[in-house]
Design a protein around this nucleic acid. Structure first.
Lengths: 105, 105
DNA sequence: TTTATTAATCGTAATAATACGATTTAACCC
DNA sequence: GGGTTAAATCGTATTATTACGATTAATAAA
């Protein structure tokens, strides 16, 4: 009996750029602190960086760094308002994420 | 005018253990190689470690390590079959993941 | 235009993740 | 029992992530 790889059972339509974006979003969410930040933004939409700094037991520089990761990945959007930055979820990108994950698995 | 944190707009029901499990699953998926492995398992359910080793340009030890991460996080299940291990998706856990993500965002 | 407020960025130390070859473990066949 | 095959684990080098204090940039207020 010849050993063989199981037949490919189906195709999987996902572009390279979609894959990269999905991985980046997962990676961003795969950190407890960033998950907490996202949770906070869900319940406190439009809050500023300082609110998150007050809420979490970590330094301002670290929060800012995490916000950048979440922003780059597409989870959140930041809007400059005077000297502050208001953050909220990036609805469109999050919906895209849910659609892609749903379609893939 | 007194500055203030925006009102909490809603509650977010998620237990500590659920949160940990979600973060672990995202972290596991947030790596391009592991994402590729998962993609391969979607299209080749029931394949063995060696099939994945043949498919990917990385060492056997590394593949095994990644499979462990995916298994620990709950994405896949492994079944010993003689000297080999057959892997397939952990449907129940993946469905749970999709439900939780859907409910949260 | 100085001063205050808020965030972002820089430089860097500590920790974690990734990859590898080598070795060990486990199941099977003779 | 040896011998074979397949995968897991070990030890370790390299790279990436995370966290911090210090500094800089940007806006607004006095």
């Amino acid at each position: 009996m010849v050993p063989e790889i199981p037949e490919q059972c189906c195709s999987l339509l996902i572009s390279d750029s979609d894959l990269q974006a999905l991985v980046a979003m997962c990676k961003a969410l795969g950190n407890p602190t960033r998950f907490e930040i996202l949770k906070f933004l869900i319940t406190h939409p439009g809050c500023i960086t300082g609110d998150i700094v007050d809420y979490l037991p970590i330094a301002q520089a670290t929060v800012s760094q995490h916000l950048k990761v979440l922003r780059d990945a597409g989870w959140i959007q930041g809007e400059t308002k005077g000297p502050a930055t208001c953050y909220c979820l990036d609805r469109a990108k999050i919906d895209w994420f849910k659609r892609k994950v749903g379609a893939m698995f």
